[in-house]
């Protein structure tokens, strides 16, 4: 078990390095222009967001619509550190992630007693309250936007942030802690009566999820270099949740693919800019109905076969 595990780990890491090398080569040689490089950076940030939300919504099974709120906490905290405290980029990122985790913890403790739609709506409310706070406290410069953030984010850092996020969440899911988290999704009462401290694990998963959302926020802040509260409204949370749901709840690979596809696809739709959101809405409704009604049994079958072979995705 240990040997097999280590071999798989080395293989995956080598694969990540190869992908990284290929992209770096393509960017440096101009095969991928700077416009698409930027989109790749955003795609990697979205991978961090979707995989981390998958921990809370997919594995833990708690519907939340507040991920953008945690992202904004991370974004503002890290940006303010860089601007006012002059901390190095990595330290700022870490502080941002910790700040988001702290807010996640504080929100998680009272709210995670709620379930389903109620949890969803209360996290949305917290999301909006965080946004209103960012809009009204002086240090964030409100609606005018926080400016002067150093442009430190590059492809290397976002790529490895995404790899680390996937690795950490995958490792957690594969441990006794991860099984405890998944069992809560399956049946909270039965989990409790199997001796799992469910409240602890709910808050833990929620906090870790917020931590990585904060990391994504920090990366975003140091890439865009100006922060406006409106970016982090509940529509952003919906966007992330859609990635997780379309990728498959409790399916890390799916989250990664969905995050990348949903970042790149809209770029191809730029030609229809007026109809873009309309198309997005139609695709969203159609995709949900197709997915839930199992209208693609063949595709799905192929998919699940692959899953068994790789044994990588925990469901």
């Amino acid at each position: 078990m240990k040997k097999k595990d280590i071999r798989q780990f080395i293989l995956s890491f080598a694969l990540a390095l190869v992908i990284y090398g290929a992209f770096m080569f393509a960017m440096n040689s101009g095969i991928i222009n700077s416009y698409w490089s930027g989109i790749l950076i955003v795609a990697c940030i979205n991978v961090v967001l979707s995989t981390s939300l998958n921990l809370a919504s997919g594995y833990l099974g708690q519907l939340t619509l507040g991920h953008a709120g945690f992202m904004s906490v991370g974004a503002y905290a890290s940006a303010l550190c860089s601007i006012y405290l002059g901390t190095s980029f990595i330290v700022s990122l870490f502080i941002g992630a910790l700040a988001a985790a702290l807010v996640g913890l504080l929100i998680g403790i009272p709210t995670l007693r709620l379930k389903g739609d109620y949890l969803c709506i209360i996290t949305l409310a917290f999301n909006e309250i965080i946004r209103i706070i960012m809009l009204n406290i002086g240090i964030t410069n409100g609606a005018k936007g926080l400016m002067g953030i150093p442009m430190s984010t590059n492809f290397t850092i976002v790529f490895f942030s995404a790899v680390i996020t996937i690795y950490v969440i995958y490792s957690i899911v594969k441990s006794r802690h991860g099984r405890a988290i998944i069992s809560i999704r399956e049946d909270e009462t039965a989990s409790e009566l199997a001796g799992i401290p469910t409240s602890y694990y709910k808050i833990l998963a929620f906090t870790i999820s917020a931590f990585f959302a904060g990391l994504a926020g920090g990366l975003y802040a140091h890439y865009i270099t100006i922060l406006i509260p409106k970016v982090f409204d509940y529509n952003k949370s919906v966007e992330i949740l859609v990635m997780v749901v379309l990728g498959g709840l409790g399916n890390l690979k799916g989250s990664v693919i969905a995050a990348i596809v949903l970042t790149i696809l809209p770029e191809y739709l730029r030609a229809f800019s007026d109809y873009r959101m309309l198309l997005y809405a139609i695709v969203l409704i159609a995709a949900m109905i197709i997915k839930e009604k199992n209208l693609m049994p063949h595709i799905k079958e192929k998919f699940s076969k692959k899953k068994d072979e790789n044994k990588e995705v925990a469901e």
């Binding site: 739609d117 949740l241 749901v245 809405a281 139609i282 969203l284 409704i285 949900m288 997915k291």
Partner: peptide, 10 residues
């Protein structure tokens, strides 16, 4: 409820 919620948002 998640599927319905997302569809409604759609």
């Amino acid at each position: 409820s998640l599927a319905v919620l997302i569809t409604a948002i759609g």
